[in-house]
Amino acid sequence: MSWLTAFRAIVAREALRFVHQRERFLAALVRPLVWLLVFAAGFRAALGLSIIPPYQTYITYETYIVPGLCGMILLFNGMQSALSLVYDREMGSMRLLLTAPLPRWWLLLSKLAGATAISILQVYAFLAIAALFGITVPGWGYVTVLPALALAGLMLGALGLALSSFIRQLENFAGVMNFVIFPMFFLSSALYPLWKMAESSELLHDICAVNPFTHAVELIRFALYLRLEPWALLWVTLATLAFGALAIWGYDPARGLIRKRA
């Protein structure tokens, strides 16, 4: 019962923080909508797409980038949640949380669950707006994409947690976010298929192919069209476990004490 109580309290705290920061909701939607409605119009002619899985016919560029923009929302929110952890640590509330008589991994998982749930709500809001502009997916795709969004959100949230555990000051985190978010996003299949990248540079193609965010986007893309991409599922699961283990190690209180003494 104490585990569930802590879980509910942490998730409720994330929800209240989100409710009191309405501009965060708008900011999370403005970025992908700008790409969808503005940049896509310019890239449509330059990035004509052939028939690639999971699509059964030729598609517009706007249709192609929708899964990538869903990933963008998860990525930015994962980093935003990690930023709040750095703030909590400076204020002292994070230290109080980690001293609770519960496993550290459970506390961090509760934080991840709350942040991921909020991200998923924002993704569905974005998909609803996209549908108003005629960019739709199969009806059941809105259901089958939920597990993919949850797993991708956990992976990106765990990455943010791992980064926040090694950053001591709030001012430094914004710079680190830029060095993580933009390379992960642009060196992926979010905005263009990998075969397009291979035409310009094999090296960049290989970097995109091992980028966990690429596989998160492809997992979402296939799920939206009622298909499972096993390799993407495996890669995202392994990345989630690796980032989660790194975050747990980074938030080890004993390691923090040793660092301070040193």
Score class of each variant (00 low, 15 high):
R17T: 07
L26Y: 15
R8K: 11
L16E: 13
R24C: 04
R31T: 14
R17S: 08
A28M: 14
R24A: 09
A28S: 12
F18R: 02
V19C: 01
A9R: 10
A15T: 12
V11W: 12
F18K: 04
R31Y: 07
Q21A: 08
A6I: 02
L33G: 14
R17D: 05
A28I: 12
F18M: 09
V19D: 04
L4I: 12
R31C: 06
A9H: 07
S2P: 03
A12R: 07
E14G: 11
R24M: 12
A27V: 14
V19K: 09
H20A: 08
V30G: 06
F18T: 11
A15W: 12
F7G: 07
A12Y: 01
R13S: 04
L4W: 07
E23F: 08
L16N: 14
T5V: 06
W3K: 11
R31N: 14
R13Y: 03
L33N: 13
F7R: 06
P32F: 11
Q21T: 09
R8F: 09
W3T: 13
E14N: 11
A28Y: 05
F25L: 15
T5Y: 08
A6C: 01
I10S: 03
P32K: 12
A28Q: 09
L16C: 10
R13D: 00
P32H: 09
A6P: 00
P32W: 12
R31Q: 15
F25V: 15
R17G: 10
T5G: 01
L33F: 13
F7Q: 04
E23K: 14
R13A: 11
A12N: 01
F18V: 09
A12H: 03
V11Y: 08
F18L: 13
V19W: 13
L29M: 14
E23H: 14
A27E: 13
A27G: 14
A28N: 14
L26S: 13
R8E: 06
A28L: 13
T5C: 00
L26W: 15
A27R: 15
A28H: 06
E23T: 15
V30T: 11
P32Q: 06
